[in-house]
Computed example of a mutant assay.
Amino acid sequence: MASESNGLSRRGLLIAGAAGLAGAGGLILPGRAAATEPGQPAVSSEPAGLPEPGAMVPMGMITRNYLGSAGCHLAYEPTGNTTNFTFESGFYSQLAAWKEYINNNTPDSWGWAETIYSYGAYTDKPGMHGQGRAFDIGRIKYLNSDGRTQWISMRYDVWRNYANADWWKRRYWGTAAGLMRRFRHVITYMDNGEHWNHIHVDNAIYGELDDCYYSTGSSSQTYIVQAACRQVWGLSTGIDGQWGSQTESHSTSVLRRIGRSSGTITNSANFEAFCTASFRKAVGTQAY
């Protein structure tokens, strides 16, 4: 199983050179995002999540149009344009660590996460967005050195009726599991209709790997565990957000398949392993 930091692997060298590939034809031009994912319709609603132009940035926050390194652009999902987003600085660092984690756990042929499309981070309103400690992810675009792209889409509103919807779900739920390894609050389309076009993450409870755990009382976490078992691992798991004997049995079956010899997903180390293996299998890095 890959760690979050592989040193200067071939993947690391590719990522380090990402900024120099802006002219390789892989960047989305302003206003062209809808054309890059086949069949994607125009976005009809304007989401919240961006501060007004020229707004004062609160103390302790930073504004960036990239995540962690210049080779990973941040773009506004409705337009596709590279955009400045404002974050609480600690949360931004946690997101950057997650970005390195997904870079290190996708196939080498994918290259690196070149653009993350979002509906917003800080905005002047109550809640975690109002603290700059939440981020809404619409899509992730990978680019390799040959100019080829791969997509992970959180746009359930777009692909839910596609003939290959299960293919998109596989990547979606694997990515949700990978996010859950880093962040306690990962809100998906199973939670409510407001999240049909993005996955919401925040660090209200945890945003550090050492703190991650699974709460059987969390419907949001349980949706992800159940959907990963079903969509990624091919089990017949029901998806109702309720912990029960089937969810325990099926998640334990996954743990044994990936080499965890004892315990259940309620053990933190097993939970971490489940999340990473689900992401790696969903994107085709490892078959298990």
Rank of each mutant, 00 (worst) to 15 (best):
M1H: 10
A2D: 10
S5A: 11
S5H: 12
S9T: 09
R10T: 15
R10I: 15
L27Q: 12
P38S: 09
A42Q: 13
A42I: 08
S44K: 13
E46P: 07
P51N: 08
E52L: 15
G54N: 09
I62F: 04
R64K: 10
A70M: 11
E77H: 13
G80Q: 01
G80E: 04
T82P: 06
N84D: 14
S93V: 07
Q94R: 12
Q94M: 11
W98C: 01
K99C: 06
N105M: 01
N105C: 03
D108M: 11
E114N: 08
I116R: 01
G120R: 01
T123R: 11
D124V: 12
P126S: 11
H129R: 06
G138R: 04
G138Y: 03
K141D: 15
Y142W: 14
N144A: 04
S145Y: 14
S145L: 15
R148D: 14
T149H: 11
Q150V: 12
I152Y: 00
M154Q: 10
R155I: 03
Y156K: 05
D157W: 03
R160A: 13
R160H: 14
N161M: 13
Y162G: 10
D166P: 04
K169E: 09
R170Y: 04
Y172C: 02
A176P: 02
A176L: 01
A177I: 00
G178C: 01
V186I: 04
T188G: 07
Y189T: 13
Y189L: 11
M190D: 10
N192M: 10
N192Q: 13
G193K: 11
H195R: 10
V201N: 02
I205F: 14
D211Q: 15
C212W: 05
T216H: 11
S218V: 03
S218N: 03
S219D: 02
S220K: 15
Q221R: 04
Q221I: 02
A227C: 08
C229Q: 00
Q231C: 14
Q231S: 15
V232W: 00
W233K: 05
G234P: 06
L235R: 08
D240V: 06
W243D: 02
W243T: 00
R256D: 01
I258W: 02
N267F: 11
N267E: 15
S268E: 09
N270I: 03
F271P: 03
E272H: 13
F279R: 00
